[in-house]
Design a protein around this nucleic acid. Structure first.
Length: 241
DNA sequence: AACGGTAGCAACCGCCAAGTT
DNA sequence: CAACTTGGCGGTTGCTACCGT
């Protein structure tokens, strides 16, 4: 690591998001000190990360919640994998980026121990250049496909009412959903490290099952086909095919 | 040794969606 | 139902180490 924790100075007032506005409260910014790390680590070991807004207070840190979360997620979390990215990881990042674009958190979700910030930094400093040079070398521009972005679609009113499209927090929209997109379903299919527990997968299977058991009208045909393509694509990606 | 350019990475910023009051 | 809070994300910045001249 080239950046030492003490490298960055700064004790200026925070520039909080709208939600963080507090009168006459200034929080420390810049690099984290070893003692701050220890305070945060012990706090999270003791209380967990249930409410980041309480972490600064519980830890006795003069930091904003975002800063605490970021420090934990990107640095202090013991599950973070350090060191260089190996070839398999690079390959997977390249393929997932081709598929998803800059959805770093989704990509990182397929790389155990890697954070979205790690992947993003790695991409910006290594892989993007590699990709560009690769394009220039083989002249294979035509095969660089645009990442798949959300495509709006309309859920039939009948299905909105029956509420078959249900997902857990941030995975399945409530029954009142008007629009969903292939990418969000893709997120369900891909999941991430945290969401890969069997309970959530089972919930997802049930949701998908009831969704399709109900049948879908003809105007849903393209969506179904799209999902199948996604699933095939992901299957190929994960098996290296 | 001094300097400038670049690489690598931690941290910040602004925004958004979902949840809560 | 509007306003507010919270967690999370992607984009960007800024700093140090490294390297070539």
């Amino acid at each position: 690591m080239r950046n030492t924790p003490l490298a960055m100075s700064g004790n200026t007032s925070d520039s909080p998001s709208k939600s963080q506005l507090r009168p006459s409260v200034s929080v420390r910014k810049g690099a984290w000190t070893h003692s701050e790390d220890e305070l945060l680590r012990s706090c999270i070991e003791k209380h967990g990360t249930v409410r980041w807004s309480r972490v600064p207070q519980l830890a006795g840190l003069n930091r904003c919640r975002k800063s605490c979360r970021l420090r934990w997620v990107n640095y202090l979390n013991p599950h973070i994998k350090r060191g260089t990215f190996d070839e398999d990881e690079n390959d997977l990042i390249l393929r997932l980026h081709k598929l998803l674009g800059n959805r770093w958190s989704l990509i990182a979700g397929r790389l155990p121990g890697r954070t979205a910030n790690d992947v993003k930094n790695h991409w910006n400093s290594h892989l993007s250049k590699k990709l560009i040079s690769g394009i220039k070398n083989d002249g294979d521009r035509g095969r660089v496909t645009a990442p798949i972005r959300p495509q709006p679609r309309t859920i039939p009113a009948r299905m909105q009412k029956t509420g078959h499209v249900e997902r857990p927090h941030r995975e399945i929209q409530p029954a009142s959903i008007v629009e969903e997109d292939h990418t969000s379903r893709m997120e369900n299919i891909i999941g991430d490290n945290e969401n890969c527990n069997t309970e959530k997968m089972e919930q997802q299977r049930e949701a998908d099952s009831s969704f399709f058991d109900e049948g879908f009208p003809e105007d849903e045909w393209l969506m179904q086909e799209g999902i199948s393509e996604w699933q095939n694509l992901i299957s190929d990606l994960l098996t290296g095919g």
